[in-house]
Design a protein around this nucleic acid. Structure first.
Lengths: 147, 147
DNA sequence: GTTATTAATGAAAATGATTGTCATTATGAT
DNA sequence: ATCATAATGACAATCATTTTCATTAATAAC
């Protein structure tokens, strides 16, 4: 069956349906290292799924990100980029080149980082009565090609 | 003289001129705790500076941010927000409520954070041959009113 | 399998933030 | 005061994203 997939079970019941477009987006994002914009995802999928619509891509990226299956990134380009969020894969942070826009994922030093992050989260929660759900850490600068 | 100001010396030479709009934006941003959008800045300044143009606000926010006098923030609303960047004032990070969009600046734990950040920057620079210019750390979640 | 319900879709229009154009104005060096 | 040109305001243009609406397709119930 074409639609059988590891994400299938997240779309049970009559609330969200498991569609070809959703599978296509997840397949694409989970198999690339790129951080793609909605337009790039659309351009890519159009080749294998002629007739697909850009608004459908937007609607699904929104849904998938609300479901926690993809992350929406914002590196100040005036548009969002998306990356697959695997449950097993270790978290990572970003290194962003302000010249060419390249995004490097890194997970070195993560233990130390996450240690501190955890500590900070606890303290912030107490001091500001804030429930921390997520965090972003990124470094901006010039990559090896642009320095 | 109306235009005399602490930022004046940054606009020396015939490259950048010191204008009323630039003073107005810096005055506004340096005296508020809010993280204002271009439109909000425009709406506010229009009261005291009738005839001011929205594109002028955009052009100047861009210039001031390139000069390092203001920070451009992106919390995924589809628009930028701006904050004054004082040289003396200690750096701070952000706590963002994903429900109401409130942004809380915090500078607790900064020593520990900046310590680690410095360490990571050095290692990343070596490993990825990347020149780190800046970093962002923010926590997302629910503020005390939205939890 | 057939059918009924309604979520999902594609196309196109609408929106909202930001950028570009251009004629006019105003700053700062002389 | 004069001059070169940076900065401005008005408005058009662009780009990402959202909305609308008639049609299609996924799933549950039969």
């Amino acid at each position: 069956m074409v639609l059988a997939h590891m994400w299938r079970h997240r779309f049970k019941g009559d609330v969200f349906r498991w569609t070809l477009t959703r599978k296509a987006i997840l397949d694409l994002l989970s198999s690339t290292l790129k951080h793609m914009s909605a337009q790039e995802i659309y351009d890519t999928l159009l080749k294998s799924y002629p007739g697909i619509g850009l608004s459908t891509i937007y609607r699904n990226l929104d849904l998938l990100s609300r479901m926690g299956l993809v992350n929406r990134l914002n590196i100040g380009e005036g548009k969002s980029r998306y990356e697959y969020r695997s449950s097993e894969e270790k978290a990572h942070h970003h290194l962003i080149c302000t010249n060419c826009g390249k995004i490097i994922d890194y997970s070195d030093f993560l233990d130390e980082e996450l240690d501190l992050v955890g500590k900070i989260e606890k303290k912030l929660a107490r001091k500001y009565n804030f429930i921390v759900k997520d965090h972003n850490i990124d470094f901006c600068g010039l990559c090896k090609d642009c320095r």
